[in-house]
Amino acid sequence: MAVDESMVARVAGLARLQLAAAEVEPLTRELNNILGWIDQLQAVDTGTVEPMTAVIPLTREWRKDEVTDGDIQQDVLANAPQSAHGFFAVPKVIE
């Protein structure tokens, strides 16, 4: 698999990354190097190996259904650039 410059620009847009035009070409090259390396790994036959889905052998670390958190409106809003009446205030989003 390989990416071209237009795909890099598109993915950057989706991820809200602002790339200067001059950054696109080197980034495309770097990403293709990484993808090339992954292609190399794909060459290994893993047909008989179970997929590894986690490095920690834990499965049922579930939480009990209890209210143990919340009621910290001040903390939640503390880093907000703007807040009002207990809400985050963000630039108007018009649908």
């Binding site: 939480r63 209210v67 143990t68 958190d69 919340g70 910290i72 409106q73 903390d75 939640v76 809400f87």
Partner: peptide
């Protein structure tokens, strides 16, 4: 009673941002 991945309450109609964990 609590959210899918946190211990904050799911009750409807609370004060804004009062049922929010970090």
């Amino acid at each position: 009673k609590s959210k899918l991945f946190s211990g904050a309450s799911t009750t409807f109609g609370g004060e804004p941002n009062s049922q929010v964990s970090l």
